[in-house]
Design a protein around this nucleic acid. Structure first.
Length: 598
DNA sequence: GCCGTTTTCGGCCCGACTGTTTTCAGTCG
């Protein structure tokens, strides 16, 4: 998961120039990084594993928190985060006030940095790394390589020739993997969906479904999990291995096969008895943290959950579940949608019966962000309107770029007046066209058109398209100034992130949310699969602050309205209901929500 | 170190695999 927008990546200058905050608090990302490092070092130090896990859980909770955890800790309220207790709150305060956590300083002195790197190698964990350090003085990958080549490792009890081979292979693999990236979800689904279709078409196949992180609709994925039931399992596994899009495969068995597609995507196909389908589907859908918490919850009820079933201590009976709903019900939980399975409170809500009714694609009634040939789109107003109507939308805002956009994309004030006239003159039955603009937010926070011209538009979305690398304080003020402009209806792709490409701009999300909540300015969830911006944690915080969200495609061609599924996925991962998203309403209702009408 | 539908103390997921071992610890997903 990417860093929250309020947390600049380490290594970049985070100090606000002339900042009005005397001492800069550590960002959530910095705190989380320190706690993760502490967990690694405690693990090497031989601490009880549950203590290590506690630090990692706290690091995750802090990384995902929508507000400044340092500020929270100063008020003694960081312990309200699940997984943060008094001890870790004190460590957060030490980091904020003294600039360092004493235990971290001490452990850094005890274990060289290269040792942690060694624990990350596949096949080597903290216990084995520690023995290599204690008994052979190995504290870097380079020393490890030499020791393996000189056959010194096999002298250690518990290590043998195979261990040396594995270490050398792991060191080589580590260099290869540096270029290996996660695949953005739309590309992953473009591989998965034809694969699922091909498997479903096979005569031996009964049910075939996507599991794993792709089913949860995460921003990006590393691999694909597919689960199936089949009349003839071995036949289906063999057929899978023989598909055109498969480059290589393990030897197929009745329980499945591991594949690699020509695009390099690893795919695991698992074939299971129909009676256990729910168990395996749940198990493979994850996330890991969700499954872990689910099993802990089950143990408190005397139940043990595995991919094979639910074992009841009292009766000794193994319950098999054909569906996930049965499995959750057995544990006293409402069914949990895959997008929510991240251990972000969904288990507690499922137990209390308070899970939200998540927004669906069909709830969207209009689209409020698209481009035409007037700026950098590829289609006319009419072509975009027809495509939007085809999707069942009742209204469409045409929002081309503004005057300072790059060559070929800019729309001068005069051109915008012409464009408004064209939009007003275009009548297409069944869909209402709105004259809009995606106006640049200039570095000082002012907008790209005069207010008089903006006032002629039905819908104004303001976005940052330049000077991404401003210091956080300046960027925060820039965005807030745009939010406070009475003619700005929404902020487009508010964090500026590109998934697997670039981090968000540095800005203070909390202050931006406060400003939007105060003015009624809406925030966009941009559905472009490379953006999905706001991200799920920020969008959840925005909705909690009472800010209306808009889910937009930012389509530059008619076919691109289909990316709405990714914006919906992010909204669902943000726990959003249809009510919290403005464009699930009629245009009249959206118009009434605009800041200018408040 | 955290936490509470048996608990403020005593727990804290589950199973498969691997290499090295004659019964299992460590790692992984």
């Amino acid at each position: 998961m990417s860093q929250p927008p309020s947390s600049p990546p380490p290594g970049e200058d985070p100090a606000p120039p002339g900042g009005d905050r005397a001492a800069r608090d550590p960002t959530n990302a910095e705190i989380a990084q320190a706690l993760d490092e502490l967990a690694d070092l405690y693990e090497l130090d031989g601490a009880v594993i549950h203590r290590v896990i506690a630090y990692r859980n706290a690091a995750r909770a802090i990384r995902e928190a929508p507000v400044s955890v340092a500020a929270l800790a100063r008020r003694g309220r960081a312990t309200e985060l699940a997984g943060v207790g008094r001890t870790i709150q004190e460590k957060v305060l030490a980091l904020a006030d003294e600039g360092a956590i004493p235990a971290l300083v001490r452990l850094r002195g005890k274990f060289p940095a290269g040792l942690v790197e060694i624990t990350r190698l596949p096949g080597l964990g903290p216990r084995r790394a520690r023995r290599l350090f204690d008994e052979l003085g190995i504290d870097s990958p380079e020393k490890l390589r030499r020791a393996a080549q000189e056959h010194r490792i096999r002298q250690l009890r518990g290590f043998g020739p195979r261990a040396e081979e594995a270490i050398l292979a792991a060191l080589a693999g580590r260099e290869r993997e540096r270029g290996e990236r996660r695949v953005v979800l739309d590309r992953a689904l473009a591989i998965a969906e034809p694969l699922l279709e091909a498997l479903r078409a096979h005569p031996a196949a009964e049910r075939v479904e996507l599991a794993g992180s792709a089913r949860r609709m995460t921003d990006s994925v590393r691999d694909l999990d597919v689960i199936a039931t089949a009349a003839e399992p071995l036949a289906l596994a063999r057929a899978a291995a023989a598909l055109d899009l498969v480059e290589s495969a393990s030897s197929p068995t009745a329980s499945g096969v591991r594949l690699r597609t020509h695009s390099g995507m690893p795919v695991e196909l698992r074939i299971v008895d129909p009676e256990q389908y729910g168990n395996l589907l749940q198990h493979l859908t994850g996330a890991k943290q969700h499954n872990l918490a689910l099993r802990e919850l089950a143990v408190r009820r005397g139940l043990h959950v595995s991919e094979y079933g639910v074992l009841d201590d009292a009766s000794g009976q193994m319950h098999r579940c054909a569906t996930e709903a049965e499995l959750y019900a057995l544990l006293g939980l409402d069914y949990i949608e895959p997008e929510l399975r991240e251990n972000r409170g969904e288990l507690e809500a499922a137990r209390a019966g308070t899970l939200p009714r998540l927004i669906e694609l069909a709830d969207l009634r209009g689209e409020l962000h698209c481009h035409t040939t007037a700026s950098d789109g590829t289609a006319s107003i009419e072509e975009m309107a027809l495509a939007a109507r085809e999707r069942g939308y009742e209204y469409l805002a045409i929002t081309d770029h503004s005057a300072t956009m790059g060559f070929g994309s800019r729309v001068s004030p005069a051109q915008l007046r012409e464009q408004i006239a064209r939009i007003r003159a275009t009548e297409i039955e069944g869909i209402r066209l709105l004259a809009g603009s995606e106006v640049n937010i200039l570095p000082d926070g002012s907008l790209d058109y005069e207010d008089a011209l903006l006032g002629e538009l039905d819908w104004v979305i303001a976005s940052v398209h330049s000077s991404f690398r401003m210091p956080a304080e300046a960027m925060t003020r820039r965005i807030i100034r745009a939010i406070e402009h009475p003619l700005v209806d929404a902020i487009g792709h508010p964090s500026g992130r590109k998934i697997e490409q670039r981090p968000p701009y540095q800005f203070d999300l909390q202050r931006v949310l406060e400003a939007a909540a105060a003015t009624g300015t809406m925030l966009e969830i941009n559905s472009n699969p490379d953006r999905r911006d706001l991200d799920e944690t920020s969008a959840r915080a925005a909705a909690a602050a009472g800010i209306p969200l808009v889910i937009n495609s930012d389509a530059h061609r008619p076919g691109a309205f289909a990316v709405a599924r990714f914006g919906i996925a992010t909204a669902r991962r943000a726990w959003l209901t249809a009510e919290q998203v403005a464009n699930t309403r009629s245009w009249e209702q959206v118009a009434a929500l605009r800041p200018r009408n408040r």
